Amino acid sequence: MKKLSLSALAFLTPLVSMFGMSSMAAAQSNITMYGIIDASISREVTGAGGATRMESGIHNGNRLGFRGEEDLGGGLSAVFTMENGFNQDDGTAAQGGRLFGRQAFVGLSSRSLGAVRLGRQYSPVYLAQLTVDPFPGMKGDMTGIRQWFNSGNFRVDNAIAYIAPSNSKFTGSALYSLGEVAGNAAASRQYGFSVGYTGSPLTGTLSHHLTKDNTGADSAKVWFVGGAYDIGIVKFHAAYDKTTGAGRTDIRDAMIGLTVPLRSSKIMASLIRKENKALSNADAHQVALGYLYDLSKRTALYTSAAYVNNEANSGVNAGGVNGAKNKVFDVGVRHTF
């Protein structure tokens, strides 16, 4: 991680003297450059056959980011984040080729009042999932079987977000996205919120997100609740969500899991059940097991295996084959800087 300190307004000092002002506080800006490079080799076997691939960003998405903060005085700061996603296996840009496809926002942050940010950001419901999923980002996480996240809805464009102050065990955030459709304010808009508790040994979260279609007449709604309980030798995880709307969809997902911390590593396991109440022969379940070993504070090795039993009408992408049993195994390395 590279941090640069800039006296952003120092060049104004001569001008201040010319106008007879006795003093002026030069605002201090801190800019941090950071990133993650994550690569793995995976073996996937589906109803269509098996394939061995080099995959990009399995444990954590590959990124190169810039984060900045300027102290404006009185506990108020200007903040920004620009985060590019890329694929290390072939050097291409991720998120459909966007320059800063992972995140791109600017805003104001107050220690006592919270922060307001404008731009492309993560939805509160996706961040809520990360707090309780034993497989955040790895094979076996909840995004592998949840259709709502498979549609790419965990990042939101044109978003106005509020993040509550983080000076207590309680957390909260809200987001509203402008649909930007002329003559129809409801079309393509999104909004959501999340509230949580981050105490010890209990962590809990409740979140909601709504997405309007491009006419504003139909909407997809997801409710998510989850928690974790850490007793030291093992951490238990549980989550449940319900997605409705968007063509009379009614999908329920339930997850139970655990994390076993070791000296420089941890073992993860989870079971996820997907049930479609609106369609027959459309359920699925996933069993996953993973291991992470920290070589240092910045470098880790990992491996994970997942099995998906996918009914014919489930819509879960088991290697592109519905009604198939999907098995996947990977081993990789992740480095942060």
Results as ranks from 00 to 15, higher is better:
Asn309Val: 12
Arg43His: 10
Lys325His: 12
Asn184Thr: 09
Ala25Trp: 00
Met1Leu: 10
Ala306Ile: 04
Asp294Thr: 04
Arg63Ile: 11
Val45Lys: 07
Leu113Ile: 11
Tyr291Arg: 01
Ser29Leu: 13
Ile233Leu: 15
Trp148Lys: 00
Thr171Tyr: 03
Asp213His: 09
Thr171Ala: 06
Ser296Glu: 03
Asp250Pro: 11
Ala288Asn: 02
Phe224Glu: 10
Leu202Arg: 05
Thr259Ala: 13
Ala306Val: 08
Ala324Cys: 04
Arg334His: 01
Leu292Trp: 02
Val328Thr: 11
Val79Ser: 10
Gly290His: 01
Ala312Met: 15
Ile160Trp: 04
Glu180Gln: 10
Phe100Gly: 01
Lys266Phe: 14
Val156Phe: 03
Ala186Pro: 00
Gly216Ile: 09
Glu70Trp: 05
Gly144Trp: 01
Tyr229Ile: 12
Ile256Ala: 00
Ser207Asn: 11
Val195Ser: 00
Val287Gly: 10
Asp250Leu: 10
Ala39Gly: 13
Gln129Cys: 06
Val331Phe: 09
Ala228Leu: 07
Asp250Ile: 12
Ala174Ile: 08
Asp218Asn: 15
Gly232Asn: 15
Ala51His: 06
Arg98His: 05
Ala282Phe: 09
His237Cys: 04
Asp71Ile: 08
Met54Asp: 00
Gly107Pro: 02
Asn281Lys: 15
Asp283His: 05
Asp141Tyr: 03
Met21Gln: 14
Ala305Cys: 06
Phe19Met: 14
Gln147Asn: 05
Lys297Gln: 12
Ser123Gln: 11
Ile163Pro: 00
